[in-house]
Amino acid sequence: MDNLDAEYPIAPPAPLKGRGAVTNLQGRYELDQRVTVDDGWLAGGEDDAPPALKTQVFEEQARSILTRNASPDIPFNVSLNPYRGCEHGCIYCFARPTHSYLGLSPGLDFESRIYAKINAPELLRRELSKKNYAPEPIALGVNTDAYQPVERELRLTRRIIEILHDYGHPFAAITKSSLIERDMDLLAPMAERGQVMAAVTITTLDAQIARTLEPRAATPSRRLRTIRALSEAGIPVGVSVAPVIPFVTEPDLERVLEACAEAGATSASYIVLRLPWEVAPLFKDWLAAHFPQRADRVMARVHDMRGGKDYDSSFAHRMKGEGAWADLLKQRFDKAVKRLGLNARQHGILDMSHFKKPAPAAAPNPQLDLF
């Protein structure tokens, strides 16, 4: 506890109900730094409690919708994210630092100020209709969850999948939400043609830990039911155990894989906790608030797997870590996957042959403006 006591000489930050981050840490691009100080005026009674933080959704007109990457440790080249920010509030989310580009906090702002790319379906259709467009699988919702709560009302993800379905374009989706079940009427026929895969992220089976770690995502038991529903509908589904957090979710690794295999998952992957940029201090605050007795042990193990640092961004190590503990974790995962038959990956290649290019949108007729 020595390090924790030194970092928080008065008291660690208090958690907020229904939120992952416990602070609204400033983004790295802000020029002015602000520090909250307790001057003794707050008595700490119920009347002094801060009001519940409400989620705000802002509509934006995106300029483009497909993102391409060349990272050798990511199994896709093209991704699509209908939303910026994510109300699920997962404290470990590697996308949190992207809110800094908006002049907002990667902390509470990231999970309470959501930007919806309201023109995403139209942009996708326009992209697919380009003469030089070459189809390759699109990864849907890898940065922020495409099925986060606001999707129930806006249905951007639904409209995107309708386009992919209608034009036979393959894609893979990853989510922590049961809302994906809503779209099984589109996913199932695409699965029959070998055009879709799904993955459900499950970090732990402990509902209490999940409630603080990823507060507004579906419960672990509900996600298992989603895996079963997708599997029974003939949709290839895998489990992503991401991230593996030492001494927090790591003890659950084998049990998560066993439960997912029983539910019908056919493949599995894992990623070791990543703490890029502002995620590191946000995660440390979360540890201090929820697991103060384990905080030093957790960070010591993270440093063991990250070359003595909070994070190593090199392609060779950023996903799995390095060193003895990373090797041991890989051995545990590989043995469990082999025992459970989760490494078959018989649906690893998506079929491109059904893609048909949309007709280009008709240019507006200026003559019509006269009538």
Rank of each mutant, 00 (worst) to 15 (best):
Met1Asp: 11
Asp2Leu: 08
Tyr8Glu: 00
Pro15Asp: 01
Gly20Asp: 01
Thr23Ser: 10
Gln26Thr: 03
Gly27His: 00
Glu30Asn: 08
Glu30Ile: 09
Arg34Tyr: 15
Thr36Ile: 13
Asp38Trp: 13
Asp39His: 05
Trp41Thr: 10
Gly45His: 03
Pro50Glu: 02
Phe58Cys: 07
Glu59Ile: 12
Ala62Leu: 01
Ser64Tyr: 14
Asn69Val: 11
Asp73His: 10
Val78Gln: 00
Val78His: 06
Gly85Leu: 00
Ile91Asn: 05
Ala95His: 08
Ala95Phe: 02
His99Arg: 11
Phe110Gly: 04
Arg113Ile: 09
Ile114Leu: 10
Ile118Val: 14
Leu123Ile: 02
Tyr133Arg: 00
Ile138Glu: 03
Gly141Phe: 00
Asn143Tyr: 10
Tyr147Asn: 08
Arg158Glu: 04
Arg159Phe: 03
Arg159His: 02
Ile160Ala: 02
Ile160Met: 03
Ile163Leu: 12
His165Asp: 00
His165Arg: 13
Tyr167Thr: 05
Ala173Gln: 10
Ile174Tyr: 09
Ile174Cys: 07
Ser178Gln: 14
Glu181Ser: 13
Met184Trp: 05
Leu186Cys: 12
Leu187Asp: 04
Leu187Met: 13
Leu187Ser: 10
Met190Tyr: 10
Arg193Tyr: 09
Val196Thr: 01
Met197Thr: 06
Met197Asn: 02
Ala198Glu: 09
Ala199Val: 03
Ala199Ser: 07
Val200Ile: 13
Thr201Lys: 05
Leu205Met: 07
Glu214Arg: 13
Pro215Ile: 05
Ala218His: 12
Leu230Glu: 02
Ser231Pro: 12
Glu232Trp: 12
Gly234Ala: 01
Ile235Ala: 05
Gly238Ile: 04
Gly238Val: 03
Ser240Glu: 00
Ser240Lys: 06
Val241Pro: 04
Ile245Arg: 06
Pro246Trp: 03
Leu253Pro: 11
Glu254Asn: 14
Arg255Asp: 11
Ser269Gly: 12
Tyr270Gly: 06
Ile271Arg: 15
Val272Ala: 13
Leu275Ile: 07
Trp277Asp: 12
Glu278Arg: 06
Val279Lys: 11
Pro281Asp: 09
Leu287Thr: 00
Ala295Arg: 09
Asp296Tyr: 08
Asp296Trp: 07
Arg297Gly: 09
Val298Arg: 06
Val298Pro: 11
Met299Asp: 06
Met299Asn: 05
Ala300Phe: 15
Ala300Glu: 15
His303Tyr: 10
Asp304Lys: 05
Arg306Ser: 02
Arg306His: 01
Asp310Ile: 01
Phe315Gln: 13
Phe315Pro: 13
Gly321Ala: 07
Gly321Ser: 11
Ala324Val: 14
Asp327Phe: 14
Asp327Tyr: 13
Gln331His: 15
Leu340Pro: 06
Gln346His: 14
Gly348Val: 14
Phe355Arg: 04
Ala361Ile: 06
Pro364Met: 01
Asn365Phe: 01
Gln367Ile: 15
